[in-house]
Amino acid sequence: MRLGTAERAKLQEWLGFISTELHKGVFVPLLDPDAAADVLSYTHKKVALRLNVLEQHLHGREFLLERFSVADAYLVTVLNWARYSGVELAQWPSVQQYYERTARRPSVAKAMAEEYVLYREEQDRRKAAAM
């Protein structure tokens, strides 16, 4: 997809938000098995602030930008971690609908299925190594 300057800036803005506010700011600490209780408590307080921004933006929209982009692929990946980190997307209906709709896209569903197989294989390797 060729983007004009304004579109490119919006894409960069969303990639920055996803990478810093969601990926690193929310899900890295929540998925860390060694995270201290106070870190988890602090992070859970920040979840709503960040997902409220996303909820407002996605309300009435199909994608982050005018059409599916790399930012959507990244966001659906990060939102997939919600189920493993105790974040209930139902509190943000537009975010949840976006996630479900985007995850059903054939290319996204295929990528997620392939990634899940790799994840399970890695989990099995770790269990075997711990024995």
Rank of each mutant, 00 (worst) to 15 (best):
R67C: 08
H44G: 02
H59Q: 15
L58K: 03
Y42C: 11
T43L: 04
L79Q: 04
L54H: 00
E62R: 10
V78E: 01
Q56L: 13
E55N: 12
L65T: 09
S41P: 00
R50T: 06
R67T: 13
G86P: 08
E66D: 11
A82L: 03
A71N: 01
H57N: 01
L51C: 10
A73D: 06
G60Q: 09
A73R: 03
H59T: 15
V70K: 11
H59L: 12
E88N: 14
S41Q: 13
S41K: 12
E88Y: 13
K46P: 01
N52R: 14
Y42E: 13
R61L: 12
N52E: 11
F63Y: 15
K46A: 13
H59P: 00
G86R: 10
H59K: 14
H44V: 04
V87I: 05
A82K: 01
L58E: 09
E66L: 09
V76I: 02
E88H: 07
G60S: 07
R61V: 06
H44A: 09
T77H: 09
L49P: 06
V76W: 01
E62G: 11
F63Q: 00
V47L: 06
F68R: 08
E66H: 06
V47D: 02
A48R: 14
Y74G: 00
S85R: 12
G86N: 03
R50Q: 14
L51W: 00
F63L: 13
A82D: 02
H59Y: 07
L51K: 08
E62Q: 15
H44M: 06
N80W: 12
S85Q: 04
R67A: 10
